[in-house]
Design a protein around this nucleic acid. Structure first.
Length: 839
DNA sequence: AGCACGCCGACT
DNA sequence: GTCGGCGTGCTC
């Protein structure tokens, strides 16, 4: 018999061994998703290995058989299994859960339970028993008497209610009913559109050559068709040809034809039957603004620097050798073209390419550029896809019909074989770090994937992370630099305004006189301005003017933000809201005022200052829907907006030539975060925002307002001097021994009981204390997390720091193996390897 | 994560 | 003496 190594989708640390199902002949292939028994439950399992059972050695546990196979063919490719295993061990997360997050959906199924009556006589007796008379009050019990069984959905409901669950258990205990587990598979259908194109027989029948004459074909042409068609069919054919020719002979969607001519369904099917059309299913791509992309692929001529960079990388693509490159190039230097051509080089070798971008950048032009270049060979993964669409993309990649994958973090798990090159754009972005479940870093996983697949990886950024840049200094990565912008456009001039000394005509506003003047000039020139604010809402804190009390969320240790558009106070951590008409909970005063900047307020002030200007705001409040987000971008593009106010969301990847002024309202927001990366983050954010100005023919101008004009992050952002910022960071981090001079693992504890959380943190700290001393690991803490409570859960943390990654991982494994005794059940322990965010 | 086993307090 | 609270540990 065959034994299978299976990772189960449950927090189980080891993989488990299962046997072959009795009623099945053929082997189950590696990469299959299966249903396995786990204790009393049934869970999804992932088949990682198969081996014949050795008669010599019998395992000491009872091997249970696999119950069912969800996927007829292997679902995930076997070559990704080493990557899954690496993530599981490096990030200290159960393998089964890693695989679950790596797959496009859970192709599964929890087990559901059906109730079946075994002994109807005892069940009937229950009605008469006085202590169980309440049973009869439940509808499900009546139904049980009638139908002798209950569906899984109903059982799930019953089990949610404590009292009803008790009664159900009693029935099971005395043997009158039985729980039967049942598979509830999630129904996922790939979403496709029906399209029509000209059938091969059409060309035979008409004598028209598909290559030569089609482009000159007119819809009203006499097509020399052998059969005389009805008017409706002629009309349908003409409509089709119209669209077909207009789109450059791309298949026409049924939906489009039906909209133009609602009654054409019959005619369409006739035309198919007559061999004029052929019908098939296809995904129809649109650009970020919802327009169908028609432009033809074009390869730009490269600048000399771009050329040099590509020549460095190409040999590794051809030879199939792992090599990490850090592509350091200023904004607007044409990194995208390098990516496109690197991917093309991979395709020429019969290989594939994987391109990762931060989620938000996907809505930008990048998506359109890749589609224009690679067309149907491109697969796209972003959070806007439905489960079905995601599965659809996954299968296209799996089959090999999509050879270039463009996507956010989780696209690093795309199942492409023969990987030729991996590209991580904006590699410094903290968004690459997954902050729940397996807390992997998309960039680092990408590096490991390239290593396992033996191909080069390009990490691109205008402001590389200090860690990555340091890797080039250490010789771990190869540094490639592009210093010149395309067409040698100058970088925008950056003007830093000291808010604490500069006089302001309007003390009540956040706009300095310079900023007001510059916005005025910009508007006069018919150009657009972008104002960047770090926070959502109207004002970031609500302060009692009488006693100084700051209003906090009831469930989190954070101050509430006032959102004027909603007329409410909002917690940005848990979503709690309350009326803004309140009295101070501490002194009952009514004199409560909002202080601190928010995007809403800046929008308000901009409207006040420039009543004639068209002002819009773009932040996550406005952009809850991708559609709305895109429509605002579209209006900026169409010059229907003069001033765009926004948060982080507008800092990345927007390419609008008519924006000539960028204003940073208050650059200091990031400094308040107690994190060794605060300076680095502020620098890259300012650099990115700065890069939005002057992308067209007119030179750009940037105004940064700050209270700390001498802070290095601001000074070096002003000077566009990445290297100086890097040197400064190295100088400050070296004596402190922070990364890149060490590695960090953050052990986090959370739970509803504050003292228990604290105790668990202290106990864990004591448990590893000697070990850490011996292996040169610093323990920082235990201490309450910077945000001490979120969603009614108190939070403590223990930060481990060491030069030796191995030592850190060993200690971590020791902690996790003792998790049970260190943490009571209502305290959760979370391990965060290479934490990106300490909050 | 579930789910069971097991060991202590408050009730019939 | 039982019922049920939740602390501890296992799942092939």
């Amino acid at each position: 018999m065959t034994l299978y190594e299976v990772a189960v989708a449950a927090p189980v640390d080891q993989t488990l061994t299962y046997g072959h199902p009795a009623d099945r002949k053929d082997d189950i292939s590696i990469g299959s998703c299966v249903l396995v028994p786990l204790g009393r439950r049934r869970v999804t399992g992932y088949v990682l290995d198969a081996s014949p059972q050795t008669t010599a050695e019998q395992p000491e546990f009872t091997v249970k058989p696999i119950l069912d196979v969800f996927t007829p063919a292997p679902f995930f490719p076997a070559f990704l299994i080493p990557l899954y295993r690496w993530i599981s061990s490096y990030y200290h997360h159960p393998l089964g859960e890693v695989i679950k997050t790596a797959l496009p959906l859970a192709p599964s199924a929890k087990s559901g339970y059906r109730v079946k009556v075994i002994d109807i006589e005892t069940l009937k007796l229950h009605e008469e028993l006085p202590e169980r008379s309440r049973l009869c009050e439940f509808n499900w019990f009546q139904a049980l008497l009638q139908t002798q069984e209950l569906p899984p959905s109903q059982v799930a409901k019953i089990r949610q209610d404590k009292i009803q669950k008790k009664y159900l258990q009693a029935l099971i205990k005395d043997g009158s009913v039985e729980l039967v587990s049942e598979l509830i598979a999630s129904q996922v259908k790939a979403k496709e559109e029906t399209v029509y194109t000209l059938a091969p027989t059409f060309f035979e029948n008409t004598g028209i050559s598909p290559t030569v004459e089609l482009s000159t074909l007119q819809p009203e042409d006499d097509l020399h068709l052998t059969k005389i068609f009805k008017p409706s069919e002629r009309k349908t054919l003409a409509l089709f040809l119209n669209n077909f020719i207009k789109s450059g002979t791309k298949p026409v969607a049924r939906k489009v034809l039906l909209t133009l001519y609602p009654n054409c369904a019959k005619a369409l099917s006739t035309l198919c039957d007559e061999g004029i059309f052929s019908k098939h299913n296809q995904r129809v791509y649109r650009d970020p603004f919802g327009n169908t992309i028609t432009s033809a692929p074009q390869t730009l001529t490269l600048t000399e620097e771009q050329q040099v960079v590509l020549e460095e990388i190409k040999p590794n693509i051809v030879a199939g050798e792992f090599k990490p490159f850090l592509l350091f190039g200023v904004t607007g230097c044409g990194k995208t073209e390098v990516y496109l051509q690197a991917a093309e080089a991979a395709l020429q070798q019969g290989k594939t390419a994987l391109v990762l971008v931060p989620e938000i950048a996907l809505a930008s032009q990048l998506e359109a550029q890749f589609y224009t270049r690679f067309g149907d060979q491109l697969a796209l993964f972003h959070s806007g896809l439905s489960q079905g669409e995601r599965l659809d993309q996954w299968q296209r990649v799996r089959e090999g019909s999509a050879k270039v994958v463009l996507g956010a973090r989780s696209a690093v798990f795309a199942p492409m074989d023969k990987l030729g090159v991996v590209i991580v754009d904006e590699e410094h972005e903290p968004a690459y770090k997954q902050e729940e479940g397996p807390r992997y870093h998309g960039r680092d996983v990408a590096v490991m994937r390239a290593k396992l697949a033996s191909c080069p990886i390009i990490l691109g950024s205008a402001t590389p992370s200090v860690t990555s840049y340091n890797n080039t200094v250490k010789g771990k990565y190869r540094l490639l630099t592009i210093t010149k912008r395309v067409q040698e456009k100058p970088l925008p001039k950056v003007n830093v305004i000291d808010l604490s000394t500069k006089k302001r005509a309007r003390r009540d506003l956040f706009f300095s006189d310079t900023l007001i003047r510059e916005i005025g000039n910009t508007l006069d020139n018919n150009q657009q301005a972008l104002l960047f604010v770090n926070r959502r809402g109207f004002s970031s804190t609500m302060l009692c003017r009488d006693c100084g009390h700051v209003l906090q969320c009831r469930h989190c240790q954070v101050s509430l933000t006032y959102h004027r558009s909603k007329g409410r106070l909002l917690c940005h951590y848990c979503g709690f809201t309350m009326s803004s008409q309140i009295i101070c909970p501490s002194c009952r005063s009514q004199n409560i005022a909002g202080v601190g900047i928010g995007a809403e307020r800046i929008e308000e002030e901009a409207k006040q200052l420039f009543p004639a200007a068209r002002v819009a705001r773009l932040d996550s409040d406005v952009a809850v829907k991708r559609k709305r987000y895109l429509s605002i971008l579209q209006s900026v593009k169409n010059k229907e907006i003069d001033i765009l106010v926004g948060t982080q969301m507008i800092a990345k990847g927007l390419h609008f030539p008519n924006i000539t002024l960028v204003g940073v309202i208050w650059a200091d927001a990031g400094f308040a975060i107690p994190d060794y990366k605060a300076g680095e983050r502020t620098f890259s954010l300012l650099s990115q925002v700065t890069g939005r100005a002057g992308r067209g023919d007119h030179p750009g101008k940037v105004i940064i307002q700050t209270n700390q004009p001498h802070h290095y992050a601001i000074r070096f952002a002003q000077a566009h001097d990445y290297r100086a910022m890097y040197d400064q960071e190295i100088e400050t981090r070296s004596p402190m021994g922070f990364p890149p001079f060490s590695r960090l693992i953050n052990i986090k504890f959370n739970g509803p009981d504050e003292t228990k959380v604290e105790q668990a943190a202290r106990k864990t700290s004591a448990f590893i204390n000697d070990d850490c001393k011996q292996h040169h690991i610093d323990i920082l803490g235990p201490s309450p997390s910077p945000v001490g409570k979120i969603k009614d859960k108190f939070r403590w943390q223990l930060l481990l720091k060491s030069v030796s990654a191995t030592a850190l991982h060993n200690v971590c494994s020791r902690i996790l193996s003792e998790r049970g005794s260190l943490c009571p059940q209502n305290v959760r322990m979370v391990v965060d390897v290479d934490p990106e965010n300490m909050m």
